[in-house]
Protein backbone atom coordinates (compact mmCIF):
# COMPACT_ATOMS: atom_id res chain seq x y z
CA UNK A 1 0.00 0.00 0.00
CA UNK A 2 2.28 2.63 -1.37
CA UNK A 3 1.96 6.06 0.27
CA UNK A 4 -1.02 5.06 2.39
CA UNK A 5 0.68 6.06 5.63
CA UNK A 6 1.03 9.55 4.20
CA UNK A 7 -2.71 9.74 3.60
CA UNK A 8 -3.36 8.68 7.18
CA UNK A 9 -1.51 11.76 8.39
CA UNK A 10 -4.82 13.56 7.95
CA UNK A 11 -5.75 12.00 11.27
CA UNK A 12 -2.46 12.19 13.10
CA UNK A 13 -1.77 15.82 12.17
CA UNK A 14 -5.19 17.33 12.81
CA UNK A 15 -7.57 17.52 15.73
CA UNK A 16 -10.26 14.85 15.43
CA UNK A 17 -13.62 14.94 17.20
CA UNK A 18 -15.92 11.96 16.78
CA UNK A 19 -19.49 13.13 17.35
CA UNK A 20 -21.30 9.82 17.03
CA UNK A 21 -20.30 6.76 19.04
CA UNK A 22 -21.79 4.59 21.73
CA UNK A 23 -21.06 2.63 24.81
CA UNK A 24 -23.38 -0.30 25.41
CA UNK A 25 -24.78 -2.57 28.06
CA UNK A 26 -23.32 -6.01 28.47
CA UNK A 27 -25.32 -9.20 28.89
CA UNK A 28 -25.79 -8.34 32.59
CA UNK A 29 -27.61 -5.10 31.75
CA UNK A 30 -24.77 -2.93 33.07
CA UNK A 31 -22.16 -0.87 31.20
CA UNK A 32 -19.93 -3.18 29.15
CA UNK A 33 -16.61 -1.84 30.34
CA UNK A 34 -14.55 -4.24 28.27
CA UNK A 35 -16.22 -3.07 25.10
CA UNK A 36 -15.82 0.54 26.20
CA UNK A 37 -12.12 0.06 26.93
CA UNK A 38 -11.71 -1.50 23.48
CA UNK A 39 -13.40 1.53 21.96
CA UNK A 40 -11.03 3.83 23.81
CA UNK A 41 -8.05 1.84 22.52
CA UNK A 42 -9.42 2.44 19.03
CA UNK A 43 -9.70 6.13 19.88
CA UNK A 44 -6.01 6.21 20.75
CA UNK A 45 -4.95 4.16 17.76
CA UNK A 46 -6.86 6.34 15.32
CA UNK A 47 -5.64 9.66 16.78
CA UNK A 48 -9.11 10.70 17.88
CA UNK A 49 -8.87 13.61 20.31
CA UNK A 50 -12.41 13.57 21.63
CA UNK A 51 -15.29 11.15 21.30
CA UNK A 52 -18.93 11.86 22.05
CA UNK A 53 -20.89 8.81 23.19
CA UNK A 54 -24.43 7.93 24.16
CA UNK A 55 -26.11 4.79 25.36
CA UNK A 56 -29.51 4.48 23.67
CA UNK A 57 -32.00 1.63 23.76
CA UNK A 58 -32.97 0.48 20.28
CA UNK A 59 -36.63 -0.21 20.97
CA UNK A 60 -39.95 1.48 20.45
CA UNK A 61 -40.85 1.59 24.12
CA UNK A 62 -38.36 2.95 26.61
CA UNK A 63 -39.40 3.87 30.15
CA UNK A 64 -37.94 6.70 32.26
CA UNK A 65 -36.31 4.11 34.54
CA UNK A 66 -34.61 2.62 31.51
CA UNK A 67 -33.31 5.87 30.07
CA UNK A 68 -32.10 7.00 33.49
CA UNK A 69 -30.15 3.76 33.76
CA UNK A 70 -28.66 4.41 30.31
CA UNK A 71 -27.47 7.84 31.38
CA UNK A 72 -26.17 6.71 34.77
CA UNK A 73 -24.16 4.03 32.96
CA UNK A 74 -22.83 6.56 30.47
CA UNK A 75 -21.83 8.75 33.40
CA UNK A 76 -19.60 5.91 34.66
CA UNK A 77 -17.86 5.90 31.27
CA UNK A 78 -17.45 9.69 31.32
CA UNK A 79 -15.85 9.52 34.75
CA UNK A 80 -13.39 6.89 33.57
CA UNK A 81 -12.35 8.89 30.51
CA UNK A 82 -12.91 12.53 31.55
CA UNK A 83 -10.51 14.04 29.04
CA UNK A 84 -11.42 12.00 25.99
CA UNK A 85 -15.11 11.23 26.28
CA UNK A 86 -18.14 13.50 26.27
CA UNK A 87 -21.73 12.35 26.55
CA UNK A 88 -25.16 12.86 25.04
CA UNK A 89 -28.19 12.11 27.24
CA UNK A 90 -30.62 9.55 25.89
CA UNK A 91 -34.33 10.11 26.60
CA UNK A 92 -37.76 9.07 25.37
CA UNK A 93 -39.61 12.36 24.72
CA UNK A 94 -42.97 10.62 25.10
CA UNK A 95 -42.45 10.99 28.85
CA UNK A 96 -42.40 14.75 28.73
CA UNK A 97 -41.98 15.62 32.40
CA UNK A 98 -39.44 12.87 33.07
CA UNK A 99 -37.53 13.77 29.92
CA UNK A 100 -37.30 17.40 30.94
CA UNK A 101 -36.01 16.45 34.37
CA UNK A 102 -33.53 13.95 32.91
CA UNK A 103 -32.11 16.34 30.33
CA UNK A 104 -31.51 18.94 33.03
CA UNK A 105 -29.93 16.29 35.29
CA UNK A 106 -27.63 15.02 32.56
CA UNK A 107 -26.51 18.43 31.31
CA UNK A 108 -26.29 20.30 34.61
CA UNK A 109 -25.20 17.53 36.99
CA UNK A 110 -23.57 14.81 34.92
CA UNK A 111 -21.76 17.14 32.51
CA UNK A 112 -23.27 15.87 29.30
CA UNK A 113 -23.26 18.16 26.29
CA UNK A 114 -26.23 17.16 24.15
CA UNK A 115 -29.25 14.93 23.68
CA UNK A 116 -29.44 11.69 21.73
CA UNK A 117 -32.80 10.52 20.39
CA UNK A 118 -33.72 7.30 18.70
CA UNK A 119 -36.91 6.41 16.82
CA UNK A 120 -39.49 6.46 19.60
CA UNK A 121 -41.03 9.57 17.98
CA UNK A 122 -40.31 11.57 14.87
CA UNK A 123 -38.36 14.78 15.32
CA UNK A 124 -41.31 16.87 14.06
CA UNK A 125 -43.87 15.18 16.30
CA UNK A 126 -45.57 17.73 18.58
CA UNK A 127 -44.49 15.65 21.57
CA UNK A 128 -40.92 16.80 20.84
CA UNK A 129 -41.65 20.49 21.38
CA UNK A 130 -40.92 20.64 25.10
CA UNK A 131 -37.66 18.79 24.65
CA UNK A 132 -36.51 20.94 21.73
CA UNK A 133 -37.32 24.09 23.69
CA UNK A 134 -35.37 22.75 26.67
CA UNK A 135 -32.38 22.07 24.43
CA UNK A 136 -32.58 25.59 23.03
CA UNK A 137 -32.60 27.02 26.55
CA UNK A 138 -29.67 24.85 27.61
CA UNK A 139 -27.86 25.50 24.31
CA UNK A 140 -27.18 21.86 23.50
CA UNK A 141 -27.49 20.00 20.18
CA UNK A 142 -29.92 17.18 19.44
CA UNK A 143 -28.48 14.13 17.69
CA UNK A 144 -31.20 11.90 16.32
CA UNK A 145 -31.15 8.55 14.57
CA UNK A 146 -32.31 8.97 10.96
CA UNK A 147 -33.14 6.72 8.08
CA UNK A 148 -34.97 6.67 4.77
CA UNK A 149 -35.56 3.02 3.99
CA UNK A 150 -37.19 1.62 0.87
CA UNK A 151 -37.02 -1.94 2.17
CA UNK A 152 -38.32 -3.02 5.59
CA UNK A 153 -39.48 0.44 6.72
CA UNK A 154 -41.90 -1.35 9.05
CA UNK A 155 -38.94 -2.12 11.32
CA UNK A 156 -38.69 1.57 12.31
CA UNK A 157 -42.19 3.02 11.84
CA UNK A 158 -41.46 6.34 13.57
CA UNK A 159 -37.96 6.92 12.27
CA UNK A 160 -37.14 10.45 11.09
CA UNK A 161 -35.46 11.42 7.86
CA UNK A 162 -34.72 14.59 5.92
CA UNK A 163 -38.21 16.05 5.56
CA UNK A 164 -38.99 15.48 9.25
CA UNK A 165 -35.83 17.31 10.27
CA UNK A 166 -36.66 20.10 7.85
CA UNK A 167 -40.10 20.51 9.43
CA UNK A 168 -38.58 20.67 12.92
CA UNK A 169 -35.90 23.13 11.79
CA UNK A 170 -38.57 25.37 10.24
CA UNK A 171 -40.43 25.47 13.54
CA UNK A 172 -37.27 25.88 15.64
CA UNK A 173 -34.60 27.74 13.65
CA UNK A 174 -32.71 28.43 16.87
CA UNK A 175 -32.30 24.73 17.72
CA UNK A 176 -29.27 22.69 16.60
CA UNK A 177 -30.17 19.36 15.02
CA UNK A 178 -27.77 16.62 13.94
CA UNK A 179 -29.39 14.24 11.47
CA UNK A 180 -27.42 11.13 12.37
CA UNK A 181 -25.26 8.95 10.16
CA UNK A 182 -25.71 10.10 6.60
CA UNK A 183 -23.75 6.94 5.75
CA UNK A 184 -26.12 4.60 7.52
CA UNK A 185 -29.52 6.12 6.99
CA UNK A 186 -30.71 4.67 3.71
CA UNK A 187 -31.34 7.02 0.79
CA UNK A 188 -28.87 9.77 1.61
CA UNK A 189 -29.72 11.83 -1.46
CA UNK A 190 -33.32 12.05 -0.21
CA UNK A 191 -32.30 13.37 3.17
CA UNK A 192 -29.61 15.74 1.88
CA UNK A 193 -32.05 17.38 -0.51
CA UNK A 194 -34.61 17.82 2.23
CA UNK A 195 -32.27 19.44 4.78
CA UNK A 196 -30.02 21.45 2.47
CA UNK A 197 -31.89 24.72 2.98
CA UNK A 198 -31.89 24.57 6.79
CA UNK A 199 -28.63 25.87 8.27
CA UNK A 200 -29.43 24.58 11.75
CA UNK A 201 -29.45 20.95 10.58
CA UNK A 202 -26.08 19.22 10.58
CA UNK A 203 -25.23 15.65 9.75
CA UNK A 204 -22.46 13.27 10.76
CA UNK A 205 -20.70 10.90 8.40
CA UNK A 206 -20.98 7.82 10.60
CA UNK A 207 -22.31 4.50 9.34
CA UNK A 208 -20.98 1.51 7.47
CA UNK A 209 -22.16 2.60 4.01
CA UNK A 210 -19.20 3.67 1.87
CA UNK A 211 -21.00 4.79 -1.29
CA UNK A 212 -18.54 6.55 -3.52
CA UNK A 213 -19.53 10.20 -3.96
CA UNK A 214 -21.49 10.37 -0.72
CA UNK A 215 -18.96 12.58 1.02
CA UNK A 216 -18.60 14.97 -1.88
CA UNK A 217 -22.37 15.29 -2.33
CA UNK A 218 -22.86 15.92 1.37
CA UNK A 219 -20.31 18.74 1.39
CA UNK A 220 -21.62 20.11 -1.90
CA UNK A 221 -25.16 20.35 -0.53
CA UNK A 222 -24.52 21.36 3.08
CA UNK A 223 -21.03 22.84 3.11
CA UNK A 224 -18.28 21.28 5.24
CA UNK A 225 -19.30 23.38 8.24
CA UNK A 226 -22.53 21.44 8.53
CA UNK A 227 -20.81 18.06 8.51
CA UNK A 228 -19.36 16.29 11.55
CA UNK A 229 -17.00 13.37 11.79
CA UNK A 230 -18.57 10.32 13.44
CA UNK A 231 -18.27 6.55 13.33
CA UNK A 232 -21.22 4.82 15.07
CA UNK A 233 -19.40 1.50 15.22
CA UNK A 234 -17.85 1.76 11.77
CA UNK A 235 -14.41 3.22 12.37
CA UNK A 236 -12.73 1.70 9.30
CA UNK A 237 -15.49 2.82 6.98
CA UNK A 238 -15.56 6.36 8.28
CA UNK A 239 -11.81 6.89 8.29
CA UNK A 240 -11.66 5.41 4.79
CA UNK A 241 -14.38 7.76 3.53
CA UNK A 242 -12.51 10.74 4.93
CA UNK A 243 -9.26 9.62 3.32
CA UNK A 244 -10.83 8.73 -0.02
CA UNK A 245 -13.18 11.67 -0.54
CA UNK A 246 -12.36 14.20 -3.24
CA UNK A 247 -12.52 17.10 -0.80
CA UNK A 248 -9.97 19.80 -0.05
CA UNK A 249 -7.75 19.43 3.00
CA UNK A 250 -9.51 22.44 4.47
CA UNK A 251 -12.92 20.77 4.08
CA UNK A 252 -11.66 17.56 5.64
CA UNK A 253 -10.10 19.39 8.57
CA UNK A 254 -13.36 21.27 9.11
CA UNK A 255 -15.31 18.00 9.25
CA UNK A 256 -12.81 16.38 11.61
CA UNK A 257 -13.05 19.27 14.05
CA UNK A 258 -16.13 21.26 13.18
CA UNK A 259 -15.63 24.82 14.48
CA UNK A 260 -19.38 25.37 14.92
CA UNK A 261 -19.42 22.63 17.54
CA UNK A 262 -16.25 23.52 19.44
CA UNK A 263 -18.18 25.48 22.05
CA UNK A 264 -20.19 22.46 23.10
CA UNK A 265 -17.03 20.61 24.04
CA UNK A 266 -15.87 23.23 26.51
CA UNK A 267 -19.12 23.50 28.45
Amino acid sequence: MKNFAEKMELFSRNRVVNWHEHVWFGADGELDEKLMDGLMEDVEQTHTDQIVCSLPILAQKVTPEEFRHCNDSLAIALKKYPNKMKGFAFVNPGYRRETDYEVHRCIEELGMIGVKLYYQYRIDDPVMRDLIETCIRLDVPILMHASKLNYHPEEQPFVSNGPHFAAAAREYPEATFIMAHISGGGDWEWSLKAIADYPNIYTDISGSVCDDGLMEKTVQMLGAKRVLFGTDGSYSACIGKMIGADLTDEEKITILNNPDFARYLVK
Binding site: M1, F4, M8, S236, G240, K241, G244
Partner: peptide
Protein backbone atom coordinates in the same frame (compact mmCIF):
# COMPACT_ATOMS: atom_id res chain seq x y z
CA UNK B 1 -12.60 -2.59 -2.99
CA UNK B 2 -16.02 -2.73 -4.69
CA UNK B 3 -15.11 -0.02 -7.19
CA UNK B 4 -16.87 2.06 -8.40
CA UNK B 5 -19.58 1.69 -5.76
CA UNK B 6 -17.32 2.36 -2.78
CA UNK B 7 -14.27 4.33 -1.74
CA UNK B 8 -11.34 1.90 -2.14
CA UNK B 9 -9.51 3.52 0.77
CA UNK B 10 -11.98 2.00 3.24
CA UNK B 11 -10.47 -1.43 2.66
CA UNK B 12 -6.94 -0.08 2.84
CA UNK B 13 -7.70 1.39 6.27
CA UNK B 14 -8.56 -2.07 7.59
CA UNK B 15 -5.20 -3.43 6.54
CA UNK B 16 -3.33 -0.34 7.67
CA UNK B 17 -4.54 -0.74 11.25
Amino acid sequence: ACQPFQYPEVQQVKLYY
